[in-house]
Design a protein around this nucleic acid. Sequence first.
DNA 1: TACCAGTTGGTTTTT
DNA 2: CCAACTGGTA
Length: 750
Amino acid sequence: MRAPPVIHSEHGMDIYGSLNETQRKAVTHVQGPLLILAGAGSGKTRVITHRIAYLMFREYARPHNIFAVTFTNKAAEEMQNRVSSMIGPSGKSVFIKTFHSASVFILRLYGERIGIPRNFSIYDQSDQESVVKEILLRMKLDPKKIRPSMIVSKISEIKDRAELLQGANIDSMLPKYYNFNFTEIYEEYHRTLKSHNALDFNDLLVRTVELLQSSPETLDVLQSRWSHFMVDEYQDTNYSQYCITKLLASRSRNICVVGDDDQSIYSWRGADIRNILNFENDYPEAMVVTLGKNYRSTKPILDVATSVISHNSMRKQKELSTEREDGEPAVWIQANNEYGEAEFVINTIKTLKYRERFSNRDFTIFYRTNAQSRIFEDLLRRENIPYRVIGGLRFYDRKEIKDILAYLKFLSNPRDLVSLLRIINVPARGIGRSTVDRIRQIAGDESLSEWDVIRDTRITGKAGKSMAEFAEIIASLQALNTGVPGELPLSKFIDRVLSLTGYMKSLEDEDTFESSARIDNLNEFINGVYAFEMAVPGCTLDQFLQEISLYTTQEDPDENPDEAKNSVTLMTIHNAKGLEFPVVFITGMEEEIFPHRLCTDTDEGIEEERRLCYVGITRARERVYLTSAELRRSYTGVFHRDPSRFLLEIPDDLIMRDYYTSDAYMNPSPRFAQGYRAPQPARRDEEDEIEENGGGNGSTFRVSETVVHPKYGQGRIVRIEGSGDNCKLTILFGASKKVFLEKYTPLERI
DNA sequence: TACCAGTTGGTTTTT
DNA sequence: CCAACTGGTA
């Protein structure tokens, strides 16, 4: 271990000197409340990290006395790294987390005081939906008419709102037109989660507030633990988050919040802009510092951003200045269709790489909705340009990963019924629907848990035997998971889970490309666990699960393992907050898409979309390209698109407008193709067969031919089965294999 | 109980 | 276009 004290002071002094005057004021104001209004690119993260270093250097606080929260795991990680690189290894003991993981931390330690066992499960949206779906069925409501996802988002919305914690009753928070008993569903949902010993994402925050409010001892312990508080992105806090920080900081009053009302983009998640606007009312003695100097973008970029945001009426008037007077003008490209848009973006990337100093990692492509990423992925793949998608398809959404997590969650928390139902017959072990129904029936009748019934040997016969085997596997795994740190490392334990349950074997037996891809993913998962184990020595299964359940947007670890470091980045604008890139493309700048059609009803909705646009533009350091398409295809047809009102709000002299037309072939939609396809001549079934390749027949394709799929990109045909309309093509994309029905798949030959 | 072929419905952003 | 569900069959 290297002793850090000398490094502290030297670094502290050195960096302190490089701050501008307002930044310095913010860094050195360490006693009492502080509001930092930090415009885009004004060095906000620098200020936060320097402030932490300053607190320690001047001995106002020790690392473990500092509490800092951000919104995303990525931002928290980034901040932890930057703090560590400034103050050395002790940076690790600064408490830097997301609101949700800070809440989990508190609930794990003290939740028992309000009846939350330490090993609670965290339910994500799909877990929530399966709970709600069962409730609807039980209440004889049709899940097709009343969609579980809609109920879940309503439940979540209610828990995000301030009224709930202020004691309002549920009915008063509902729209009037519901023709079903929402409150009953709401209450049954919470009874169910309680019996599963599970919390959803909102509960993590709400229950933490409840704990802090109802248990003075808990509040006291935590107030003694932390003396200095920092909250990043304060404009995006909701009421629970506001309460948590307010309660914790109420003794020391050393609370520093950082935010920018122009970058508030989460009101749909309950974020309440009043939290930042009213900070000075909450803390009349607060000092306010405004960081108005932008160190990121060139003037042309900043001018465009300003011209857009100035159309919002509900904002604090402010100006951002920059010293980077020169720079390329912003560009608006109107493409003929979405394919042309993508082509323009990829061509521009290639050109800038070739003619200038840019490399892949300098580019980012933003879009409003995740579904828009596909066409860019396609073209990037076709051009062999490495890319990574942030937050799109989630690693943790994959079947095999959800399965292993369900095993682990159930082992940690045997009351977690959602997980039990997921794994009880995976791999198939002869416990089918009817058996499961019987188990649940008995459990309900005798108020036992389902796991109690399974362990009980009263069900006999074939099903009983399978159940006894399952019970034995689970029991032996539970015995292995002693919870004693260091006894059996977590990664080894998970290995045992995969082997003892037969999960790994069933994949090995399957022996297809797909199953081997799943095995790879599981190994990747175990690698991740191993890394976690190293970072948190002696961690328990409970601890691991609660961390991992919050890690929802981690990028796909096996996407581009070698090239990940120098890849083009694709993400939604929501994911882009806090980041910066030399070259930014904001795509799909069309009415109905951006602003999204569901947001155009109210002025508030439009203004939030406009802030989102502002966030997007201000990510750019050197260049910004705004693109729109005149025609865009959705799964329901091809539609004409008007340019986004945000584009029209930019004065002509601030943006260079141009057009781009792609004459590349656009695959017609299947419906269109079917309508116009000439009648198929009788197939010459036997003539062009390639026997050794499995007898490709009845297809217009040949085995081993290379084709391009609109979603998966380039692949090779490895098998052809059936003929005519039933012709199935098996195509290999990289490591994974997919089967398509030829008539529904618009494939292009290479 | 497991697997299949056919049908249906869905369009936002995320911890 | 695709995932998730349904109802039928082996």
